[in-house]
């Protein structure tokens, strides 16, 4: 980080993206600092997914800058994102049910012993260590197939997979959707621990209750624009809901300026 330890590790400046006539993102600023949980909220179609997909390298933004650790970077594909140390945990988790926890953690980045054998013992060891460091203690065995895990355990495996690669920024897309009370608690604790470890965490969620429990700051998107940025400690759910549904936008889509 160039400008002190409190500067944003990942910053988007004035990014825009349109699909034909639809303006999905209009001149959006976004940032997240190391050790911080930044919530990204907005109604359906507000542009949350589009924003994340730009960071993920699924498609490029039409305009705007991506600044990582104080330097402008360009992201041309998912590999660039991973190289920067940004990991994204998608809502549908992208785990292969038939493979065990270890195989999923290392999928696509398997450890190989010369000449080309999988190095199972190293992978199993690192999996155990990573899960242990995240205090994920509810797995019966790391050699268990993912199909048999609960929703919270699956989320924990997906998150552990993301942080195992010395990542600096972790983006979680709806991590608590479809989870029960205890499972949600488990995942929110995990999110807090990630930030405590000095990672920058971006959490996308519709559940404001969850967000106020873990987030330090909240970015609100509405109709492709950033309409508000709150310090969670100085805001409340009421205020955020109003921003999500009726936040002031600079330009109305479909209307000339």
């Amino acid at each position: 980080m160039v400008d002190g330890h409190n500067g944003p590790i990942l910053e988007l400046k004035g990014v825009s993206k349109h699909f034909g006539a639809v303006k999905a993102l209009v001149n959006v600023d976004f940032e997240v600092r190391a050790g911080e949980v930044m919530a990204l909220v907005g109604d359906n179609g507000a542009g949350k997914s589009t924003l994340v997909k730009g960071i993920a390298g699924i498609y490029p933004y039409d305009e705007g800058e991506i600044i990582f650790e104080g330097r402008p970077v360009s992201i041309h594909g998912p590999a660039d994102t991973a190289d920067l140390g940004i990991e994204i945990v998608y809502q549908d988790l992208a785990l292969a049910d038939n493979l065990d926890v270890v195989a999923n953690m290392f999928l696509g980045r398997e450890e190989i012993r010369v000449p080309f054998r999988l190095n199972e013992s190293v992978m199993e060891k690192r999996t155990r260590e990573t899960l242990h460091s995240l205090s994920v203690t509810t797995l019966r065995s790391v050699r268990q197939a993912v199909a048999g895990l609960s929703g919270g355990q699956r989320q924990a495996v997906a998150v552990a997979k993301a942080v195992m690669w010395n990542s600096k920024v972790v983006i979680l897309d709806e991590p608590t959707a479809a989870l029960g009370v205890a499972q949600t608690r488990q995942v929110l604790d995990l999110v807090t621990r990630l930030a405590d470890r000095g990672l920058a965490v971006v959490i996308i969620s519709h559940n404001l209750h969850d967000i106020f429990e873990v987030a330090h700051r909240i970015t609100v998107l509405r109709l492709g624009q950033r309409v508000a940025l709150y310090e969670a400690a100085q805001s409340n759910q009421q205020e955020v809901v109003e921003a999500i549904t009726a936040g002031t936008i600079e330009t109305v889509p479909g209307m000339a300026k």
Binding site: A96, N98, L99, L107, E110, F116
Partner: peptide
């Protein structure tokens, strides 16, 4: 690794694709 990828594709092709 190749064999592992075969199983991954059989289990969840989308996960395999996202894993690179």
């Amino acid at each position: 690794r190749f064999g592992r990828h075969i199983y991954a594709i059989g289990g969840n092709p989308e996960a395999a694709r996202r894993a690179g």
